[in-house]
Design a protein around this nucleic acid. Sequence first.
DNA 1: TAAATAGTTCAAAAACTTTTGAACTATTTA
DNA 2: TAAATAGTTCAAAAGTTTTTGAACTATTTA
Lengths: 96, 96
Amino acid sequence: MKKTIDVTDDQQIQVFKALADPVRLAVLKYLKHCEEPVSCGVVGKALGISKTSGSYHFKLLEAAGLITAEKIAREKYVQLQPATFERYLTNFYDQL
Amino acid sequence: MKKTIDVTDDQQIQVFKALADPVRLAVLKYLKHCEEPVSCGVVGKALGISKTSGSYHFKLLEAAGLITAEKIAREKYVQLQPATFERYLTNFYDQL
DNA sequence: TAAATAGTTCAAAAACTTTTGAACTATTTA
DNA sequence: TAAATAGTTCAAAAGTTTTTGAACTATTTA
């Protein structure tokens, strides 16, 4: 059955879905301790996830706006986007 | 495949999973505008969800600590638990 | 006491998400 | 130029979540 309750919360729900997974939480945690953008390969290796699975999770995190990505030649460099956390989490309760 | 990345984030992930669904977000939104505890039946009817499905969603919200529930005779009265939002969302980024 | 009401539980079905491996594109290195 | 490396895409398989209806318990109302 398709969800029909509210259609205005899309970005909010995408953010929560992106956060509701241990692999993606581990990715965010890893990135939090990087000063610089890091390549997907480096993150994936550090966490022991396959490149296909990595590709899937980085796509979701980017779609949710929790990370940004820049492709430089062969590699894709990712970094946290703190403004999205601020916007969708920090005041979530008051904005409910 | 079982998730093996981190086993300490259980409550955090339960909270995000609970929030990553439009029915449950609608329940929380509804409760936000209630001064008093409300019965599950009243909420369910207001949102047009079946009682079985309501029972399932209220259980998840309660397990995540986002609502508390008190059974009074036939009825179960639910209300938001703002401390959980505060604890798991407000400073999520800094706690990462 | 019988019928109605509030909610739970259970198992099956439906829907959705994640992992996997193979095949692919593009870039770099030997 | 060939081989290696970084990442993507695709379809199938595996896993998880949500909905459904029927059967149930407990309380209330007639």
